[in-house]
């Protein structure tokens, strides 16, 4: 599994570049590196459904980020750190590393040997029970269709939220206020 470690190292490097680089266009492109590396890792870990969805969603997310933010004049302004932000971050990272150490010392199975007590039911019974050859498809749309219903609800809420935040009608009073401030 040496490819996995190489790709994970590339993703970590991409994430650090995305966060520390000054130019926002470079940052968005570096996040694209992280997402596409993630897609290849999903393929290596035998999850082709998730890899296909990830690569497509990554492209859409990068297009949205670039088009929605980067035609503004913000590219070369310095973006420093917040006061107390560094202290908070170090505190949180310490706690996260502690939690990770506690988790890995006991509860989690080693990499490559999953706990299959519940999930063994799905590959055993999917074809006879639902007729779908793709087990993941039978899980999301038959055994756990409530998950998908909840996902549809969240997506609908997000679309309504975007439409509400971005609406341009009925804002005449606010434009007048802005004009006064200027």
């Amino acid at each position: 599994m040496i490819e996995l470690y190489v790709l994970l190292g590339l993703m970590i490097a991409g994430a650090i570049i995305a966060i520390e680089v000054k130019n926002l266009l470079s940052a968005v492109v570096a996040v694209g590196i992280v997402g596409l590396g993630l897609s290849i890792i999903f393929l290596l870990l035998k999850a082709p459904d998730v890899a296909l969805t990830q690569i497509v969603v990554e492209i859409a997310a990068v297009i949205l980020l670039i088009r929605a933010t980067l035609h503004r004049d913000i590219a070369l302004k310095p973006c420093g750190s917040r006061p107390f932000g560094g202290f908070l971050a170090i505190l949180f990272l310490g706690l996260a590393v502690l939690a990770g150490a506690l988790t890995f010392s006991g509860g989690l199975n080693p990499f490559g040997s999953p706990l299959m007590t519940v999930s063994e039911f799905y590959p055993m019974n999917a074809v006879a029970g639902t007729g779908a050859v793709n087990v993941v498809s039978s899980v999301i749309l038959d055994y756990r269709a409530y998950d998908t219903l909840g996902e549809a609800t969240v997506l609908f809420t997000a679309v309504v939220g975007v439409l509400t935040v971005m609406r341009s009608k009925g804002k005449k009073k606010e434009e007048d206020l802005q004009g006064n401030n200027e």
């Binding site: 997310a61 993941v136 996902e151």
Partner: peptide
């Protein structure tokens, strides 16, 4: 076979992540 249950959960989580990212951009 590998465990199919987390694959199904992540499949929905990715699309929700895109929607919330779009909301944050708005």
């Amino acid at each position: 076979m590998v465990d199919p249950l987390p694959h199904a959960l992540v499949l929905t989580s990715i699309v929700i992540g895109l929607a919330t990212t779009a909301f944050m951009i708005a």
